[in-house]
Each structure stands twice: as C-alpha cells, then as structure tokens.
C-alpha cells in the first residue's frame, strides 16, 4: 500500500518536471522560462521527496526527506528572485509580446 502511494507521488513529480522542462525549451524569453521552470521543477522535486517520505515512513530517511522540502522551497524561490533581478540589470530584453514594463523607471 505504502509502496503504491510512493510510486504514484514520484510519478506525479516526474510528470511536473517534464512540464517544466518543456517550458524551459519552448517559451520565448528568459523571464518566462524562469517562471515555468522554477515553479514546475520545484514542486515536482518536492513531490518526489514526499514520495520518499511515504516509502520509508517515520525514521531516519523519512525525516531527512522532510527537512529537504522546506530547504528546497526557500532556496529555489530566492535563487529565482536573484536571477530575475540580475538579468534585468544585465540588460536582457523582454519578448516582443510584452505589454507593460513598470520596472524601467525604477532602475534609472
């Protein structure tokens, strides 16, 4: 029973990772790629670690997986902020389809 639930959680995680990587390849500019990839891949890996927790139950390995989940969330989101800000200051252009840019006045 536990094994079945773990396999289902890990499969869902890998499916989310596939969506994220398709977004990484297909979307047109850097900010959109960062959005798709960060969201999907972070939640996918958290789902895989949740599957590890279900598979091992309460114990040494399970608690390690439980500790890894909040670390993954915080580091992935903060790294995404830093990359987006750095890319804007570097001068990366936004896609042609963009309609609004409030940040330009703030940087000057």
């Amino acid at each position: 029973m536990n094994d079945m639930a773990a396999i289902i959680l890990i499969s869902v995680g890998v499916l989310f990772n596939i969506f994220g990587c398709i977004g990484l390849i297909r979307l047109p500019d850097m900010y959109n790629r960062l959005q798709a990839a960060t969201k999907c891949v972070t939640l996918g890996c958290c789902s895989i670690l949740l599957g590890v927790l279900v598979h091992f139950g309460i114990g040494s390995a399970g608690f390690r997986a439980l500790v890894a989940i909040p670390i993954l969330f915080f580091t992935a989101t903060v790294a995404a902020h830093a990359l987006a800000r750095g890319a804007y200051h570097f001068g990366t252009k936004m896609d042609k389809r963009s309609v609004k840019d409030d940040y330009r006045e703030a940087v000057k």
Binding site: V14, C21, V41, T42, L83, G86
Partner: peptide, 18 residues
C-alpha cells in the same frame, strides 16, 4: 544570452535532487 544559460544551470541543480 548569458542569463538563459544561468537559468539552465539553476534548474539542473534542482533536478539532481529528484
């Protein structure tokens, strides 16, 4: 561009945890 490559590196690091 260079930021695109850095996004790739970041996502690579998260995938390895999976």
């Amino acid at each position: 561009t260079i930021p695109d490559r850095m996004v790739g590196i970041d996502i690579f690091g998260i995938l390895v945890v999976g």
